Computed example of a mutant assay.
Amino acid sequence: MGWLEPQEWEAVALSLRVSFWATLVALPFGVFIAHALARWHFPGKQLLNGLVHLPLILPPVVTGYLLLLTFGTKGPVGALLQDFGIVLAFRWTGAALAAAVMGFPLMVRAIRLSIEAVDPKLEQAASVLGASRVWVFVTVTLPLILPGIIAGSILGFAKAMGEFGATITFVSNIPGETRTVPTAIYAFLQVPGGESSAMRLVVVSVVVAMGALIMSEWLARRAAKRVSGT
């Protein structure tokens, strides 16, 4: 990436760091929630489904503001975390949280569709043989939905790379700390002569997004073939 200026590369590196941790931390929760929505029946299931997909519907700025109210140093969760020396607002860790929240619905949806494609009779057969629910999931369900998990992770990662509204509202646009690729593009467009830097970062964003979409589609088709046995 020698064609990127130091400030541009700094934004790309920070975006990769933020997106990696956002995806890694969100993935276990994504698998659990997706499995619950696909296989379990419980009161409030539709409410949970709505909450999971809420970031897709709400304006990102609203999501960022809600994160600030909750995880800011004056917020109920943020104040508690601060007692343990953990501060999220206006830090790169807060950017990772915002990115994780925004990418979570896409991750859950991809994994849920993959789980729903698995024949429940396969899981029931393992249960009849005496396997516990956890063991059935690990030995039967998980191998079959692995392409879906990977696809969901890729979509979540790509969404995290492109997150802007919630990030800039929750953690601002601090160079070297919270200035990711989207916020860097915004900053470059506000100064004279910054168009070339912004354009180079736009190219990076388009390449990452297209690569993620192509790979997720390929993995989704592979998952469908694997489940159907063709």
Rank of each mutant, 00 (worst) to 15 (best):
Met1Ala: 13
Leu129Trp: 10
Gly130Ala: 10
Leu51Phe: 15
Arg200Leu: 00
Lys45Phe: 09
Arg200Ile: 07
Pro182Gln: 04
Leu24Ser: 09
Leu122Cys: 08
Asn49Met: 12
Arg179Glu: 03
Phe164Asp: 01
Val227Glu: 10
Glu177Ala: 02
Ile33Arg: 08
Gly2Leu: 09
Val171Arg: 02
Val77Asn: 02
Ser196His: 06
Phe32Thr: 12
Val138Ile: 14
Val52Lys: 00
Ile86Thr: 10
Leu69Lys: 10
Pro76Ile: 01
Phe170Leu: 05
Gly156Tyr: 10
Ser172His: 01
Val138Gly: 12
Ala34Gly: 10
Ser114Arg: 07
Val202Thr: 14
Glu116Gln: 14
Leu106Lys: 07
Leu68Gln: 02
Thr139Gln: 15
Val31Gly: 01
Gly2Arg: 01
Leu66Lys: 09
Ala158Glu: 04
Asp83His: 11
Leu51Arg: 10
Leu106His: 04
Ala11Asn: 03
Ser197Glu: 04
Leu14His: 04
His41Gln: 14
Ser197Trp: 05
Trp40Gln: 15
Val191Ala: 11
Phe157Asp: 01
Ala126Lys: 08
Leu14Met: 11
Leu58Thr: 06
Gly103Val: 01
Asp119Arg: 06
Gln82Ile: 04
Trp92Leu: 09
Phe84Lys: 06
Leu37Ile: 11
Val108Ser: 03
Pro6Asp: 02
Glu217Tyr: 00
Arg200Ala: 03
Ser127Arg: 14
